[in-house]
Each structure stands twice: as C-alpha cells, then as structure tokens.
Write a protein that binds this DNA or RNA. Structure first.
Lengths: 189, 189
DNA sequence: CCATAAAGTGAATGACGCTTCATGTTGTAG
DNA sequence: CTACAACATGAAGCGTCATTCACTTTATGG
C-alpha cells in the first residue's frame, strides 16, 4: 500500500523540501504561486517538482490537504476539552474564531476551509480528513444542543456554510463583528 | 464636463456595443474574461476596446459600476415602498435575498457587491453609486430599528459585511438557510 | 569500485493574455 | 466631392506560466 520500493535518500529529502516550500509559498501567496517560485524556494529545479507530483493542482491539493489536518486537529482538541468539562458551545465558538484568524493569515488554510463548504472532496486525500472534522464537530454540536446553548436545528453543514463565508480578508474588528452577529442567531432562544 | 466634441457616429455605436458585450460576458464569465472574447462578442477588433478604454481594468470597472446601479436602484425602491407603508425590516430582508439571488447568476453584480464590502471605492465611478446605496439602506435600517424589528446596534457597514460574505455560489437551499440563520441574529431581541 | 537505474536539471515549447502601433478605412465638415 | 481627422484593425511584442524531455548527475546494491 505504501511504496513498492523506498525512495532514494536524495529523493526523499527533496520531496520533503518541496512540501515545506510549497506549504510556505501557498500559505503566503495563495494557490496561484508559480511552480518556478515554489521550486526556487525549495532550492530545486522545476523539473523535480514534476518528478514528485504529476501536475500543479496535485501539488497544491497535497499542501491544502495537509493544512486541512490543522483544522481537524483543532476540532478534535475541542472535543477533548469538552469531554473534560468545557462547555461545548464555548468550544464551538472558539473553534470558529480561531479558524477565522488562521484563514486571515494562511491562504492555504483558507483554501481548505473553502473546500469544506464547496466541492466536499476536491481531492481523495481530503475525504478522510473531512470525516474527522465532521465527526468531531458533529459531536460538539449535538452536545451544545443538549446543553441548551445552541439552537436545535443547527447542523454540521450549517457550520461548513459559515466556514465557507468567513470574511477572512476583512480587518480583525470586522471579523469579530461578523462572528458576534452570527452567534446571536445561533444561541438557543 | 461631458465631451469637448461629440463622438463620431460609428464610434458611439461601437462604444455601446462594447459596453453591452462586456456586460454580458462579465455577467456570465466574471471579470477574468479576455479582452479578445469581449471584442469578439461585440463584433469589433481588440484595438477598438483600447480606443474607448485605456485598459482592461477600466473597462471592467465601468461594467461593474453599471451593475452596481442595479443594487442602488433596488435599494431606493425598497425605501420607496417603505415610505408607502411596507415594513422596513421586510424590505431589508427582501433586498438581501434578491441581491443574493442576483449575485448567484451575475458575476458582474457579484464583483459589485464584493467591492462594497472591500475597497470601498476601487473606482471613482463607484463612489457616487455607493453613496446612493448607503443612504437608502441607512434610512431603511434606522426605520427598521425605530419600528423595533431590527437590533439596535446594526449598521450599514454590518450590511456590507453581509453582502461581502454572501454564499453566492452555493445552491439555493444553502443560500436560503444562510439568510435564515443570519436573520435570527438580526431581529431585535 | 562499478554499473545502472533513479533522480535532478533547466532550456525549450506552447498556450494564453494584455497592450501597442503601423496601416487601412470611413464619417463628416466645408 | 474632397480632404482630413477620427476611428478601426489585427498582427506582433512582451510577459507569465505550466509542462516536457534530452541530457547530466548521483545514490546504491552487488
């Protein structure tokens, strides 16, 4: 399942460098950075990128999927804290708030959050991560509803919709305001 | 102020054709359509576009500003109906709902709505239209608050924030859901 | 240490888009 | 009707970018 033959030492090293560089570049400049720029940042020739990834969109998808993991980890930590007594609603709003801030500074995570709300599985690598997020957040939502803090008809899809419409490129005050407006609508009457 | 010398007959005709074609193309494909494509749709050579507009972004801005007028007209009609007895809050939600539907089908209006929430005046042509929208919606908001349907701290900027985050490319059901969630947060407690 | 397959290289290719300009066309004033 | 300015034309210039491939370099098993 993993690899018929292990990678040669230099190949593995370069692959790691490429992933790191691509992650940095996409985080900073978004998915539209050129392959040349990623290659330069990795200290590698363009051709090498194509030795490891069939084309640009595959490389980008890999990076975005990796950034995606960050969201999944965060969601699962929320669930963890909840099971240790933290109010579920507080965890949910904390999650939203953090994602929003991250998205504002990280164009790769932005793409990931966007993907959640859109083409639910632009890339196979994302599907399993999506499951993790969905399960963690779903649990959190149900608990929050049981505890009475969250309106009863709220679903995970609603939350994805919110991630999709995050005003990431707005100034912090506007982002906070947006979240506040939304939250009044979400708290149980 | 208008023109030192009137346009030659053919020039005027072509200018109109270009505006129409550009509007159609941008509506359908968004601001990233090529100049070639707009020229072809107008039945004109590329060079002619540059006889009428210094560059692409000026042409796009003109079209977007024109689409912008649609929003302003709608807002002013809302105000009109309100002064004839229609509840201000209903007019506001109607406005939002219509804008969302329009944006979903019209990439030019999308750019306009987006511009409202971002660079408040990407182009001089937009500034005066923005004023119209702001005045009409501001009045509507204050009336809705006086009538008790809208939360007291809601501002025009909040509304722009909502326009900015409209989930335009989501399916109609998702769009409706989004609006519903938001509205519960906006109605006066 | 060598043979060889794996990996790396980067100039070249082709596609596409905006913009310019030398040239040809046409409306219109007189 | 003519002459000229206004206008239109579209091929060519210039960039940018993804992708390929003939060739060189290098890791590694034997």
């Amino acid at each position: 399942m993993t690899s018929p033959r292990p990678l040669r030492a230099d190949a593995a090293r370069n692959r790691a460098r490429i992933m790191t560089a691509a992650h940095e570049q996409i985080t900073e400049h978004g998915p539209e950075v050129s392959m040349e720029q990623i290659a330069a940042a990795a200290g590698v020739a363009v051709g090498t990128l194509y030795k490891h990834f069939p084309n640009k969109s595959d490389l980008v998808a890999s990076v975005v999927a990796a950034s995606f993991e960050t969201l999944a980890d965060d969601a699962e930590e929320c669930l963890q804290r909840e099971s240790q007594g933290s109010p579920a609603m507080a965890e949910l709003t904390g999650f939203l708030s953090r994602v929003m801030d991250t998205v504002a500074h990280n164009r790769a995570v932005k793409a990931a959050a966007y993907a959640l709300g859109a083409d639910h599985a632009a890339h196979p690598a994302m599907q399993e991560v999506e499951t993790r997020v969905t399960q963690a957040l779903g649990r959190l939502i149900r608990t929050a509803q049981a505890q009475g803090g969250l309106r009863a008809d709220f679903t995970v899809d609603d939350l994805y919709l919110m991630l999709y419409t995050l005003p990431a490129d707005q100034p912090p005050t506007a982002r906070a305001r947006w979240l506040a407006l939304l939250l009044t609508g979400l708290t149980a009457r």
